[in-house]
Amino acid sequence: MESKYQITAKQLAFLDRFLKKYNFGSEDDKIELKDHIISDFETNGNGNLSQYLSEELGFINKFIGSKLQVIHKTYRRKTIDEAIGFFTSIKKLPITVAVFLTIYFLTINLNGKTLIILFYVSVLSFFTYSQFFLNIKKKDRKKLDRIEYLGQEMWLPYIMLVFPLHIATTTDFDFINSVFFSVYWFVAIAYSFAAIRVMKKEKKIIYNKYKHLLN
């Protein structure tokens, strides 16, 4: 590729400040974005970096936005696939059935208050584990979006915590269908477990793939 202009050290420092000031994504994003901007500026720019950046602002914003969207969608798809695997894998199916039957057994035999406490303890345990015990360093989250958004799929079980709280405070638990509550509890646990499995797998891949950035 032929460059018609060579970026100066002063312009390079300006670009660094620009990307830092507007907080455009993680360090990983900045590497790619910076290289693209410099390559295009050196090939097609007119020497005025400030003007070039104003013209490219739309692309820069879209670059970060679309990347985050891809990350979210990928984690969601992988978590759903993992959860579906609990029903389609011959190895996992007996465990899935056993877990559901245990939940159902508890639902029909325990009183409402104990059940709600058990529900909270089980779902919150998964949530706490996913957020605090996966040993992801805080500084690594800033370096890579893929790490920062690794635990995002725990949003569903977290939201599911609200409904039983509502029942406990406003309704008599006996009115709630035990099959419905069993399925509800089971979905919260299965999705949490699937999300944690995806987090662990992805963490291993990311730390291997991006060791240049994280070490």
């Binding site: 970026i7 050290a9 390079l12 590497i31 790619e32 910076k34 290289d35 693209h36 410099i38 295009d40 739309g58 692309f59 879209k62 670059f63 679309s66 990347k67 969207q69 891809v70 990350i71 990928t74 793939k209 991006y210 240049h212 950035l213």
Partner: peptide
């Protein structure tokens, strides 16, 4: 570029692409 990078990031997230970072002149 608005079409290229989302496609690259998707392919990477799907496990079809690997990344490698190298120092070229004054940048990575």
């Amino acid at each position: 570029e608005g079409a290229l990078y989302p496609a690259l990031h998707k392919l990477e997230a799907d496990g079809l692409l690997d990344v490698e970072v190298a120092k070229i002149g004054n940048r990575l």
